[in-house]
């Protein structure tokens, strides 16, 4: 037991992962600070902005007191941070409802859409990317390369509207508006979100496939792959035994990057399909300048994004044999 402990402490990977985690935590703190200061920096006073120029001074003062705008900035930051940690996000300016209530269900919806897409897109992208790398410069590779290039060039709304025109207007297979409700059965939910899911899959698939292909090709060009071939190792064994363990780090990165994109990039797709997710709420709140909601949803997105990148980095470190087995 103690040997395991000393191995952990002596291993440089422990130190590196620790450092990376510390940096991640620091980044989150700075981000929360920036989000807070950003809202503070609003030209004019939040109270005036909300109540209008002609509001009575007493009303403004009362409002300021309610929002604790009369306290010094750093006090308010730490109070805010403490509340956020406990899940108290304050009230929406527009509707007056508690933000956590607004956000909770929508965030779940966003995760549901992103998760479903990930389940389809990740395995598909890895397989296609691997095939394109293995059959490099054949017609298969060229077809995949041209179609993914096209797919990454299309704005999401273009893909979405084409799908709507085809599958919803012309053939009426799927609804063009994905308004799901709380008590829908899973299958109905899945049917409802088919179009946004396909849209996202197409966009993410293209990115992920291209990156997977590049990562595998990079590894396949290394001398030890040639050495394995000259040892008479079979093709598939080379792929699984020699190429994959060394392509793991870049592939983990590819997946994390695209997961992050999925959670964050759903905004446009949610708006197109009027999907009740966090992205749509954010866009709505930005147009209404409902700052507390913007603040809260922005923070949630940022935390998810940083968290995913952090996980990817840590996993990539763990997959590096030089770090796992130090000198």
């Amino acid at each position: 037991m103690t040997r395991v402990m000393t191995w952990f402490i002596k291993n440089p990977i422990f130190k590196m992962v620790g450092q990376r985690l510390a940096i991640g935590l620091g980044t989150l703190l700075v981000i929360s600070g920036l989000i807070f200061v950003g809202v503070e920096a609003l030209p004019g006073d939040l109270a005036e902005a909300v109540l209008g120029q002609n509001a009575l001074p007493e009303t403004v003062a009362a409002f300021r007191a309610e929002l604790k705008l009369d306290l010094p900035a750093h006090t308010r930051y730490f109070t805010w941070l403490g509340e956020v940690m406990q899940g108290e996000l304050g009230n929406s300016l527009a509707s007056g409802k508690p933000i956590s209530e607004l956000i909770g269900w929508r965030f779940k919806n966003t995760l549901f859409l992103a998760g479903t897409t990930a389940l389809v897109a990740i395995p598909l992208a890895l397989i296609l990317g691997m095939l394109a790398a293995l059959y490099r410069d054949t017609w298969l590779d060229r077809c995949l390369s041209i179609s993914t290039l096209a797919a990454i060039s299309f704005p999401e709304f273009f893909v979405a509207y084409i799908l709507i025109t085809l599958l919803s207007v012309k053939f009426a297979l799927f609804p063009s508006i994905s308004s799901i409700t709380r008590d829908m059965p899973l299958m109905v939910k899945l049917h409802t979100i088919t179009l946004p899911c396909v849209t996202l899959t197409l966009v993410v698939l293209a990115h992920m496939m291209r990156m997977t292909r590049a990562a595998i090709i990079n590894v396949l060009d290394l001398p030890f792959i040639e050495m394995a071939r000259l040892k008479g190792i079979s093709k598939w064994r080379i792929i699984f035994n020699h190429a994959l363990p060394n392509a793991l780090a870049p592939i983990i990165n590819v997946i994390a990057l695209n997961l992050a994109y999925l959670v964050v990039g759903v905004v446009v797709v949610e708006v197109v399909f009027v999907y009740p997710g966090l992205g749509q709420l954010l866009v709505d709140s930005v147009s209404k300048r409902d700052l507390p909601v913007v603040q809260a949803s922005g923070l949630i997105f940022a935390v998810t994004y940083v968290g995913l990148n952090l996980t990817a980095d840590v996993l990539a470190m763990m997959s590096n044999p030089r770090l796992r087995h130090p000198q």
Binding site: P223, F224, E226, M227, R229, K231, G232, I233, N246, P321
Partner: peptide, 23 residues
């Protein structure tokens, strides 16, 4: 391929690059 490794083998210049770092 069945001859490689069994009847004809190869030793490369850079052993550091020719060994798979993961095994």
């Amino acid at each position: 391929r069945k001859l490689w490794g069994t009847r004809i083998a190869y030793v490369a210049q850079s052993s550091a690059a020719s060994f798979n770092p993961a095994h």
